[in-house]
Write a protein that binds this DNA or RNA. Structure first.
Lengths: 149, 149
DNA sequence: TTAGATGCAAAGACTTTGCGCACTT
DNA sequence: AAGTGCGCAAAGTCTTTGCATCTAA
């Protein structure tokens, strides 16, 4: 997995550049984020991290995620459920969550260009394109609800 | 306040139509929702309700909000913070939350027409227009950040 | 009358914090 | 060697649940 490896290196470099320390737990969280290309709750990250390093505690994961957010390494969003989901910044832009099957899809920021311009013009509101999280129904669930009923 | 009164009546009618019982706590929650024209957390609703009925417990408020959601009386959204916010369904469409001053604005659903069509066409995703919650920076905070720095 | 709703208290899910020791730099 | 970061455990916030009682219909 050469590409997720480079993503990990990039994260570690960012940490060093900010004069923070590179530690085993931080490396593990970076690997978990780079390995899973989707959205992970803090709990899911903890589980993944503990597969290799059982001694790493949830509180450490939260502290690291907080630091990573400061450094713009990750962003988080609150989707349908209370638990927030985290993912690497820059790699992802918008989220579509299906409230039927609870799956989250990622879509390119370009889809928000028109909306973003409109909100700016109409309300002076500057959309944060990293946090766009929309809920609705995905294709699959639309199709099955049609056939089922 | 004749207009919020009619909103309350409408809610109570919906409850009766669904063969649920109309109770003091439900009336109080309905009044809190109709009175505040904005977005309330469950906690804020509880506080408002307890101003008139101190004996009503938070768990009851949660149960009532759950029932109101089933009956499509209210919808909730997860904005920047973990706590969900609730508001009357039908009266509101989209939310813009400023992550600087933490204010939430409501905007008409019409602003999501283009986006909605695009998501449907590109991904087969049916946007739920009641749950649109976007975060960014509002005009005021944009202006002050410009002058401050 | 009687099933459903409530109040209270406890538990559960998610997240933050305090403290002393370990590890990175 | 110096001091940041960690593990553990406890606390904090937000929400759900169990159970006995009460009440709307």
């Amino acid at each position: 997995m050469p590409e997720s490896q480079s993503a990990v290196d990039e994260i570690l470099t960012t940490i060093r550049d900010a004069s923070r320390r590179v530690t085993v737990p931080k490396r593990a969280v970076a690997e978990a984020l780079a390995g899973a290309n989707g959205h992970l709750t803090a709990d899911a990250i903890t589980v993944e991290v503990q597969r290799h390093h059982p001694e790493i505690s949830p509180s450490t994961v939260y502290r690291i995620l907080e630091e990573f957010e400061e450094l713009k390494i990750v962003v988080h969003a609150h989707l349908g459920r209370p638990a927030a989901v985290y993912h690497l910044a820059g790699t992802v832009h918008g989220h579509l969550t299906c409230h039927v099957c609870n799956t989250t899809f990622e879509i390119p920021a370009a889809h928000f260009n028109t909306l973003s311009r409109d909100l700016k013009k109409s309300f002076g509101f500057q959309l944060d394109r990293h946090h766009v999280a929309l809920s609705g129904t995905c294709t699959n669930c639309l199709a099955s609800s049609r056939t089922e009923v």
